[in-house]
Design a protein around this nucleic acid. Structure first.
Lengths: 185, 185
DNA sequence: CCACAAAAAGAATGATGATTCTTCTTGGGG
DNA sequence: CCCCAAGAAGAATCATCATTCTTTTTGTGG
């Protein structure tokens, strides 16, 4: 079995990362053992280490996976003829929140306060999302509200900040609410 | 030394909890060992266990300490003759954020997604704060903006929700920003 | 001031869990 | 089809703590 084909290799990595996210959502980043992940993924410890250097790297992969999610969607909104305004935009984002991923997302924030690598991921992903909100809201101001492009861009910045904040708060509430429902294991 | 006097006992508990908060802010809830806390507090492991049943209880104490902070202050605002409006209120809250405590606060959110006891503390403290914001903003609407009390109360609810969200987002940003500055140990 | 039970210290204990090592299996290039 | 290095498995290793136990100290009621 000379080196797995790239596609297959990527599949395994995803299989592991997804199992990890499920475990993290259930038991938390630190209280999830490699043994838990082997059970959830159906793979062995040795195999996991063949795909990820160590647990820290696996956590980073999970962090990226959980924080990425929405980005692509917002990009499309901005290109739309009638881009959504702040309220509609927020509503769509909130509607798309997945409770399990919200939990891991909040855990990742906590980890970011301590682990520089995770912090970089969070800052990067957050910045990326804010930029897309900014684009979308600028487009809305120009196309729907008929503002001047230059002034719109500036105004959109503070709107984007607010939408971002409200979205993150909602993420937190969803995480807490869903934690109450699924009685830990 | 028959039982320590209550005041003294409370001092020790605080001494331990404060040392714990410092350690948590530096290394995270889980990566802080009891040994770290003994070093930071100047007390021994045995002594810590004389005051807290176990590490989980200590974490709960730290969570309460970090999440309580602002509450009392907001209460006074509401009683004021000219209570602060939403912007001013938010500005004051944000100005009062302590970076180290912000870090632990965000870690506590993450823990709350997994640990029911911590979750209860977060939900309780959050609800308490929202209620005080609600009171303060109701007072503002009535005293400064001259709204009808009944209608003011309702309107204040959504304002409180927004202020809360923006405050929490700011807490998160402060935690991340400060994490970048103090290069972990 | 005493006496002494509670508090502090710090070493010893045990578990847990990440990582590594060795041994089977198997996918894929020839 | 066949071969064999790369993958997967799973047991063994090694470190890191939380917690407990034993011994020493000390604050307090009398």
């Amino acid at each position: 079995m000379p080196r797995l084909t790239d596609a297959r290799k990527e599949l395994r990595r995803a299989q592991i990362a997804e199992a990890a996210v499920r475990c993290f959502g259930r038991n938390g980043l630190e209280r999830t053992s490699i043994a838990d992940i082997t059970a959830e993924s159906g793979l062995s410890a040795g195999s996991i280490y063949a795909h990820y250097l160590n647990k820290a790297h696996l956590v980073r992969a999970a962090a990226r996976e959980v924080l990425a999610e929405r980005d692509d969607v917002i990009g499309e909104y901005a290109a739309d003829d009638a881009p959504p305004g702040p309220d509609e935009l927020l509503a769509r984002l909130v509607a798309a929140i997945d409770p399990a991923e919200a939990r891991v997302g909040v855990q990742v924030w906590g980890e970011a306060t301590t682990d520089p690598a995770i912090r970089d991921i969070v800052v990067d992903m957050t910045g990326r999302m804010r930029a897309m909100l900014h684009d979308c809201l600028t487009a809305w101001l120009v196309k729907v509200e008929h503002h001047e492009p230059v002034e719109a861009r500036e105004r959109a910045a503070s709107l984007a900040h607010r939408v971002m904040a409200l979205y993150q708060a909602e993420l937190l509430y969803t995480a807490l609410r869903s934690a109450a429902e699924e009685p830990a294991s």
